[in-house]
């Protein structure tokens, strides 16, 4: 199967206020498969948000190529199709909500792209159901919790029926319950609607739940693999300003003290299983 998104030597240089070049992506190569849940982690300023903005042509490459479902983002005639294929969700739920009633907010994007009226209602209902927010269709968004607001924002994107949703730190502003709700929503949409997710986060516990993790540094991918492969490399992660999940760190400390434990422990359950045998 053709990958949904393909980055070939993708390079992005910003020009700052003083006309200096800031190299944010350097010849980055990546294929994102249909239906996968890909987590992107890396230090502040390593280029994650810049990468995200290329995936629906909010930014265009200054070098290399970004292909979305085979369409080159440089080719303006594809802009519409690319934006239909890849939706975005950002960090701050309050900045993403536009209407005074939840269902109107979800319908907003559909109206914007000229979806016929008769089609709007069923699509809004389906989208709200998909994020478990049907009960709130007639509520005022500003009275919802952060996690609920963020799910409304996701519903607004889901209603557009994209193949892929890019999320840039969607849980950074949420309480622990809200973070769990978003994780559950992502997995549900991946499972039930086969939506591909590119999920940027500084929470290692979230990245751990992805199918694949890529680690970025200075505009390049420096590690990638299944969560157990990436997160068991405790010392390397630290040099990249990241951390391993608690269980992996504790396991590493215990190994260091002479205990023999399996290499790929990353969850509390796995550590408990190994220690309590």
């Amino acid at each position: 199967m053709q990958p949904l998104i393909e980055l070939q030597d993708l390079t992005h240089a910003y020009t700052d206020a003083e006309n200096n070049q800031v190299l944010a992506l350097q010849k980055l190569n990546l294929q994102i498969e249909q239906g996968e849940f890909l987590a992107v982690i890396g230090a502040n300023g390593c280029g994650k948000s810049t990468l995200a903005k290329h995936l629906n042509a909010l930014l265009l490459p200054t070098g290399g190529k970004c292909l979305v479902n085979g369409m080159d983002t440089q080719d303006e005639s594809h802009l519409w199709d690319i934006r239909q294929t890849v939706g975005m969700v950002f960090q701050n739920p309050d900045n993403q909500i536009v209407a005074a009633v939840v269902e109107e907010d979800v319908a907003f994007g559909l109206e914007n792209i000229g979806v016929p009226h008769a089609e709007i209602r069923p699509r809004v209902e389906t989208a709200l159901k998909a994020v478990d927010m049907s009960a709130y269709a007639l509520h005022a968004p500003h009275l919802l919790s952060g996690g609920q607001k963020q799910r409304v924002a996701i519903a607004g994107v889901v209603a557009l029926e994209p193949r892929c949703i890019v999320m840039d730190e969607p849980t950074a502003m949420l309480d622990p319950l809200g973070r769990k709700e978003i994780m559950a929503t992502v997995k549900k949409l991946q499972r039930e609607k086969q939506i591909t997710f590119v999920y940027i986060t500084h929470y290692m516990n979230e990245a751990m739940q992805a199918d694949r993790v890529i680690v970025m540094d200075h505009g390049q991918i420096v590690m990638q693999g299944k969560p157990a492969e990436v997160f068991s490399r405790v010392a390397e992660l630290q040099t990249l300003h990241l951390e391993a999940p608690l269980a992996a760190t504790v396991a590493a400390d215990l190994r260091h003290a002479g205990l023999s434990l399996p290499r790929d422990i990353i969850t509390n359950e796995e550590l408990a299983a190994a220690l309590c045998r």
């Binding site: 919790s145 996690g147 309480d175 622990p176 319950l177 809200g178 516990n205 999940p245 608690l246 269980a247 504790v250 509390n268 359950e269 550590l271 408990a272 299983a273 220690l275 309590c276």
Partner: peptide, 23 residues
């Protein structure tokens, strides 16, 4: 805490699992 949408720290969760497992 759970009722207030919060949680207990990861460390406390780990200790709980380990104690349940007999450590």
């Amino acid at each position: 805490l759970r009722q207030a949408s919060l949680d207990i720290p990861q460390t406390v969760q780990l200790v709980e699992l380990l104690r349940q497992g007999g450590l």
